[in-house]
Design a protein around this nucleic acid. Structure first.
Lengths: 128, 128
DNA sequence: CAACTGTACTATGATATATATTACAGTTAG
DNA sequence: CTAACTGTAATATATATCATAGTACAGTTG
């Protein structure tokens, strides 16, 4: 279900948080859908349940999921603020990297063609 | 001279490597210019000499500087390969981030305006 | 009741980071 | 030559983070 890199410097639980975020953002998992239980996912990924719980706790703290003790974890209905904040973070990261690209001498043409390439890879805007 | 974040999750020596790289890339420090000695820089930044040495070792390994035992560390004359590799790495990072931007629903217009913004901040192409 | 769920806690091991300290050899100015 | 710089290496120590193992308890559901 997820591809985790055990030997990465990025902690497993953080990788999990990112992957699950993507699933939620792209609506692979819709609102109120139940996530795999802590123990089940731990078994599937052959990692410790505590690690899963840590990821779920973080996701809950960030507002992406909610939990009902005894029942399970569920995808939250994304409030507007979360989406806006998410977009703002992405913009800042992108701006920083773009600045660095200019600094090290990348030409604008090269950057623009990267934008086109990314657009194609990502499916480009609305796929309707 | 450098602004380091002690409490950052990124190691101090890595922060140092990045900062010094930028200095070299932007030619704030020119080829064959001498870098601060391990002990001096350690004192100025109030961190351990070993940490500076680790950063210098890494920079030497990556080809950005060279060292002469007994004399000091000096900025290397950047071979073509280093520049090319650097550019390739930057392109890959940028492409990844651009893909993610599209994934989370950023519009192409928004991205293009970020490119313009970055161009202005970075001074935009050749400043002649 | 049994088998799930979440949650909490302790203990342990592994690893990375930064520090302190000492030591030795090359370079250079006085 | 000597003193004061340089780089380099090695050891020991402290600390923080991460992941694991194990146990326990309470809520939910068929």
């Amino acid at each position: 279900m997820f591809e985790l890199d055990i030997r990465s410097r990025q902690p497993i639980y953080e990788q999990l948080v990112e992957k699950i975020k993507e699933f939620i953002i792209r609506e692979v998992w819709g609102p109120n859908e139940q996530l795999p239980s802590v123990r089940l996912l731990a078994k599937e990924l052959t990692i410790n349940p505590n690690t899963i719980q840590k990821a779920y706790r973080e996701l809950e703290h960030q507002g992406y999921i909610y939990s009902i003790p005894g029942k399970g974890h569920f995808v939250a209905t994304q409030p507007e603020e979360v989406s806006r904040e998410k977009l703002e973070t992405a913009k800042q990261q992108l701006l920083k990297l773009l600045c660095e690209a200019f600094y090290i001498g990348m030409k604008k043409d090269a950057i623009l063609s990267l934008v086109d390439e990314a657009e194609q890879i990502a499916g480009g805007g609305d796929p309707r």
